[in-house]
Design a protein around this nucleic acid. Structure first.
Lengths: 141, 141
DNA sequence: CTCACTGCAAAGGTTTTGCAGTGGG
DNA sequence: CCCACTGCAAAACCTTTGCAGTGAG
């Protein structure tokens, strides 16, 4: 997989005119590697193992930079801690009511239904941009 | 309207076995009166006008109590401040990308489409509970 | 070389907690 | 009357900011 390769991250950063630093590479790749909507703290600890002395403040700054450049996305949850995910094509989220687990949910058919529905019906006084489903429930074990 | 009446709030609190205090009545009713997903701070200031010396800590404690008892609901936004709304039948939210405005969106037809869709198709390894749409876009002026 | 980025520590803003005092049932 | 609730202040928590030093381009 291409995103396992450092060049992937270097390329994405350069495309946006951002400097390629070890910290940015580590944080950017950690979000792909952890792959479960990690918090800043989780990314910080994950990186500490391999990147001795990175600062938590740096993690926050890099996350903000990456989000501002549409390389990652902030995910808000019902708890008060922000989580992060790769910036990828539009998708929905499954939230487990019993734990803090979040999974991505892709469904082209559903997206088509929603797009058609809102295109036909519209919403009074509102221009619809992005539609995301927040689906809460429980994962079967 | 019934919710303009103090008895409405007294009744809801008693149903849940909660003590009826002036602070709880003020906070509970403020959420209905403000009617725009207020923050704890906004509720606090609104109540101060009529309730001299209520404490902000009390506002937070009462909001938690009301939410725990399904009398109100926390609404998480893209900012880091929690907002609150009456607990009412399932609905969706319109988020203005340009401001912090949030509006409720009710649509029985849409809900029927979604319910049918997920009942028929299901989601692998997941029991669907509530589905809420997070619709971002902009309000027409 | 230079300016953007990092590390560190301090500050900021929201929410929670502890505890003595009060009042609702 | 008693225990749950309130007020107040301090603390906790996540996140942001300031600044001197570093390193990517």
């Amino acid at each position: 997989l291409y995103f396992m390769n450092t060049r992937f991250y270097q390329g994405r950063l350069k495309q946006k005119g951002l400097k390629v630093t070890p910290q940015r590479l580590a944080i950017f790749s950690a979000i792909y590697e952890l792959n479960n909507h990690p918090t800043a703290e989780q990314i910080f600890h994950y990186i500490r193992k391999t990147h001795g002395n990175i600062a938590l403040g740096t993690v926050y700054k890099v996350l903000e930079t990456l989000a501002d450049n549409a390389l990652i996305k902030k995910v808000r949850t019902d708890s008060d801690i922000n989580r992060y995910e790769p910036f990828q094509e539009a998708h929905h989220h499954l939230f487990d009511t019993q734990s803090d687990r979040i999974e991505d949910y892709y469904d082209k058919e559903l997206d088509a239904i929603l797009t058609d529905y809102f295109r036909a019906k519209g919403i009074k006084d509102f221009d619809v941009g992005e539609i995301r489903l927040h689906i809460s429930g429980s994962f079967k074990r």
